[in-house]
């Protein structure tokens, strides 16, 4: 028994020794020179990620993960209306020191707002280091929201079981063909309660409801099932392709 214990103790201490001598547990060190924390970039410009990474033994790879820190609730829907400037770059490294200046062009219509820049680095034995920065993307090309004028129903109107909503929705940069209005939403709102009547966007279903050239919007809606009678706001919300948005509403009565 004693012998077994002794041999166990020997293997045990050998294990400890192995750790001390053999295993590389040291993570690479990343120095991120650029961008600086809370840096601001213009859409249409170039973002430079400038870093130095070192390791005690041998570097293996780095990864830059750039992604929007926008409100996650609308992320899925808006992300494809407004191409988020999400980028993943993975490249190999070698040696013990590497300097990288990665230039990432930012589309002029990229989705503005807060972003995270994360730089990861690994060494050959899988030790991983990570460093992150918050940056902001600002849109200087177009900062003017669309304009909405609701023409029907009229303020104070009583709605029937089906009704027409008409409006003129225009944007500063609308030129008839490029389609600068990206999405339109029609809602009935009473306090915290919302009834979505319709959601329209350029890529899917503007169809005959909206004409970019004239800004004319017209659509017949049915009264939502189970809606109780009372005064509601009929609201139209519109986004342009630079993420500027506005809404306009009229008070109506559901009998």
């Amino acid at each position: 028994m004693k012998r077994k214990l002794r041999s166990a103790a020997i293997i045990f201490s050998m294990g400890l020794l192995l750790i001390a001598c053999n295993a590389d547990m040291e993570k690479p060190v990343i120095t991120l020179h650029e961008p600086s924390e809370e840096a601001t970039f213009r859409c249409g410009d170039t973002l430079t990620v400038d870093f130095t990474v070192t390791d005690n033994e041998a570097l293996n790879q780095f990864k830059i993960d750039l992604h929007g820190d926008h409100d996650g609730h609308t992320h899925g829907k808006l992300a494809w209306l407004f191409p988020a400037f999400d980028t993943i770059i993975v490249e190999n490294l070698s040696g013990t020191t590497a300097d990288r200046h990665i230039r990432i062009p930012v589309a002029s219509n990229a989705w503005p707002g807060p972003y995270h820049v994360t730089v990861f680095a690994t060494d050959l034995s899988g030790n991983e280091q990570v460093i992150s920065r918050n940056i902001h993307l600002v849109n200087y090309t177009d900062t003017v929201a669309p304009n909405i004028v609701i023409t029907a129903p009229a303020e104070g109107a009583t709605l029937g079981s089906s009704f027409t909503v008409s409006a003129t929705i225009t944007d500063l940069l609308s030129n008839g063909n490029n389609g600068e209005i990206r999405s339109i939403k029609v809602l009935l709102v009473q306090g915290a309660t919302e009834y979505l009547l319709g959601n329209f966007d350029e890529a899917n279903n503007f169809g005959s409801s909206f004409t970019q050239a004239t800004g004319a919007f017209s659509k017949i809606f049915n009264k939502p099932n189970g809606i109780s009678s009372g005064t509601y706001e009929l609201e139209i919300e519109a986004y342009d392709s630079y993420f500027n948005h506005t809404h306009s509403h009229v008070s109506i009565l559901i009998p």
Binding site: K63, I88, F120, T122, L124, E128, V130
Partner: peptide, 11 residues
């Protein structure tokens, strides 16, 4: 030591 192509993931 090889990075994942997926967002929000390290190696």
């Amino acid at each position: 030591g090889q990075f994942s192509p997926l967002p929000d993931a390290g190696q």
